[in-house]
Design a protein around this nucleic acid. Structure first.
Ligand SMILES: [Mn+2]
Ligand SMILES: [Mn+2]
Ligand SMILES: [Zn+2]
Ligand SMILES: [Zn+2]
Lengths: 166, 166
DNA sequence: CACTTACTGATACCAGGTGTCAACAATCCG
DNA sequence: CGGATTGTTGACACCTGGTATCAGTAAGTG
């Protein structure tokens, strides 16, 4: 108990999930491999930072060659999250976003400057839950935890003198 | 360090903020005391559980005698939260709600059955933040934490044999 | 009481998201 | 392989929650 001198994996060592990986995961879960889904997958994997559903819609919408339906994009993202290829997180503005990181229970610290997110596996609620359950007599089922801040490189840029309205 | 054998105030001992209290708080902050605001305040204080802006709109909308404008209700809730009369929290469905409890930094455990929320003052992020900041080099500014579960009385009702579709 | 200025609320608008359902296309299977 | 099955698509209409506008109203002040 109390062993979080360091966090699970604050360092960015992504296992770099490939499209093939994701495709086989979908098949394993009984989903069909369709052209629109493949498009969503590759678009999602292309993002290094959290992205919203509407961003993907922009990526794949009628604007670009794709023309994948909005509904399909939303549906596919839901599936990818259910299959743990994507994690859904809540941005500081309260809107949901998706991020592609290694599977499992995670929380994120998200930069309000550039959107960079760093995941961590240490979950403070695990530690807190028993006490909380005892004190409140609630059955604890779930939780929501996001941390917001400014990443190192955005800290640096903020130190620069303000530009002339550029 | 590490003294959360018990939580701040899991027991429901509300100081029962009165309308007069709230009114004077608003005045102290330089807000005018208008008829619509008074209506919103009393409607808000009437709720013992978290409520959404749209719920208040229903309470005070053209349906009832009130007819307070939607925009006004949203604006007033924002003010009341800014003045720390209300706390804004995120429901399990991701949507924001307001709850009236004593001021200060709080988190809530919310019952997904009946909506009952119990606040607690212990914030696990405080403990976590230094480590997290060191490991990620982020500047930590804010966080979002909600716990979801089932309250004692909803646990009981779930134990009852299922009704005949009543 | 009259004046200033904060506040209101109708309206129009917006973003994000969901339900429908006929057309379509992966996959299966013979 | 070609056809049947059934999951999937996407246009569309629709919805909820929330915001911008701005002429009109009414708190507060002296
Ligand atoms: Mn957790
Ligand atoms: Mn906290
Ligand atoms: Zn950043
Ligand atoms: Zn309950």
């Amino acid at each position: 108990m109390m062993k979080h001198a360091t966090l699970g994996n604050a360092a960015p060592k992504l296992p770099v999930l490939t499209e093939q990986n994701v495709e086989s995961i979908l098949v394993q879960h009984g989903y069909r491999l369709t052209r629109p889904r493949l498009a969503v997958i590759s678009a999602a994997l292309r993002h290094r930072h959290p992205f919203t559903a509407e961003q993907l819609v922009a990526d794949l919408g009628t604007a670009n060659g794709g023309a994948i339906g909005r509904a399909t994009i939303y549906r596919t993202l839901e599936i990818l999250a259910a299959v743990d290829v994507l994690t859904r997180l809540i941005q500081a503005d309260g809107h949901p976003a998706y991020i592609c990181d290694s599977p499992g229970h995670r929380h994120h610290i998200v930069c309000s400057g550039c959107g960079t997110a760093v995941a961590f596996t240490f979950c403070p609620i695990e530690e807190l839950a028993p006490t909380l359950a005892r004190d409140t007599a609630f059955e604890i089922h779930d939780h929501l935890l996001e941390v917001f801040g400014v990443c190192p490189s955005c800290q640096d840029s903020k130190r620069l003198p303000p530009q002339a309205h550029a």
